[in-house]
Computed example of a mutant assay.
Amino acid sequence: MTTASTQLAAASGLMSLVLFIVAVGVLALLAGGFWMNSRVKYNESPRPRPEEQPKLPPDGPVREVRENRESQEVPQTPKGGRPLTPYELTNMDSRPSASKERPRWSRGSSGSFGGGGLGAH
């Protein structure tokens, strides 16, 4: 072992002082974070009391409504007319369908793309 490596391996008082100051700095940052968090929580509005909690409607819980919906038809372009741009189309709403029969997938198909079925053949 050379003299230079022995001196580098020896504990340096300056190095331990730097590590101590870094540790104190990290602890000060953590303490400051806890202090700031407590200030923010103190300024928040209080939690709602039990009597302020939402209550069920008198008729009980709201149930799911199932209905078939139809979209509006896209306006047809007259012959020789210019096609409509997306900006000229209105918001295409939907309306309740007159038919109460639910649409079904073809038999033997899972209905999803890549679902493993043979598809509509």
Score class of each variant (00 low, 15 high):
Gly119Arg: 02
Met15Ala: 15
Trp105Phe: 03
Gly25Asn: 05
Arg107Gln: 12
Thr85Asp: 10
Trp35Lys: 08
Pro46Tyr: 04
Pro86Asp: 05
Gln53Gly: 11
Val62Thr: 13
Lys100Cys: 07
Gln53Glu: 12
Asp59Arg: 07
Gly60Tyr: 05
Leu19Cys: 05
Ser12Cys: 07
Lys41Thr: 06
Gly108Glu: 04
Gly81Asn: 02
Leu19Ser: 08
Thr2Val: 07
Asn43Trp: 02
Lys55Phe: 01
Leu8His: 15
Pro54Gly: 05
Ser94Asn: 11
Thr77Met: 00
Gly116Met: 01
Pro54Val: 09
Ala10Lys: 03
Arg49Gln: 06
Leu19Ala: 14
Leu27Thr: 10
Lys41Val: 08
Glu44Asp: 09
Val74His: 06
Lys100Phe: 10
Pro46Lys: 08
Ser94Phe: 14
Pro61Tyr: 06
Ser109Cys: 12
Ala28Cys: 07
Asn43Phe: 01
Val24Leu: 15
Val62Arg: 14
Pro103Asn: 11
Ser110His: 10
Thr90Glu: 14
Gly32Arg: 10
Ser5Asn: 08
Arg69Leu: 11
Lys41Pro: 00
Glu70Ile: 12
Asp59Gln: 13
Arg69Asn: 02
Pro58Ile: 03
Val22Trp: 14
Leu29Lys: 01
Ser16Trp: 11
Asn37Phe: 00
Ala4Thr: 12
Gly13Leu: 02
Glu70His: 09
Leu89Met: 05
Arg95Met: 13
Arg95Trp: 13
Gln53Ala: 15
Gly13Pro: 15
Ser106Thr: 00
Leu118Met: 03
Asp59Pro: 08
Asn37Ser: 03
Ala11Phe: 12
Asn68Ala: 08
Gln53Trp: 08
Gly25Val: 03
Trp105Asp: 02
Phe20Glu: 03
Leu30Asp: 01
Ala11Arg: 15
Leu17Ala: 12
Pro86Lys: 13
Val18Ala: 07
Ala9Gln: 01
Ala10Tyr: 02
Glu51Lys: 04
Thr90Phe: 14
Arg82Phe: 07
Leu56Trp: 13
Val62Tyr: 01
Ala98Trp: 15
Thr85Arg: 14
Gln72Thr: 13
Glu101Ser: 14
Leu118Cys: 07
Arg63Lys: 07
Leu27Tyr: 06
Ser5Asp: 07
Met36Arg: 10
Met92Tyr: 05
Glu101Thr: 15
Gly25Arg: 06
Leu89Gln: 01
Pro96Leu: 10
Trp105Val: 03
Thr85Gln: 13
Val22Ile: 14
Ser99Lys: 13
Pro50Val: 13
Ala120Gly: 06
Asn37Trp: 00
Glu52Val: 09
Asp93Thr: 10
Ser109Leu: 01
Ser38Met: 11
Thr2Met: 10
Met36Thr: 09
Asp93Gln: 10
Lys79Gln: 10
Pro58Ser: 02
Gly116Ala: 02
Val24Cys: 15
Arg102Met: 12
Leu30Val: 08
Ser97Ala: 15
Arg95Cys: 08
Ala9Val: 00
Asp93Ala: 09
Glu51Gly: 09
Val74Lys: 05
Leu27Phe: 09
Val26Leu: 14
Pro54Gln: 05
Gly115Tyr: 03
Pro75Glu: 09
Val22Gln: 15
Glu88Thr: 00
Leu8Trp: 09
Gln76Phe: 02
Pro48Lys: 15
Pro103Val: 08
Gly81Asp: 01
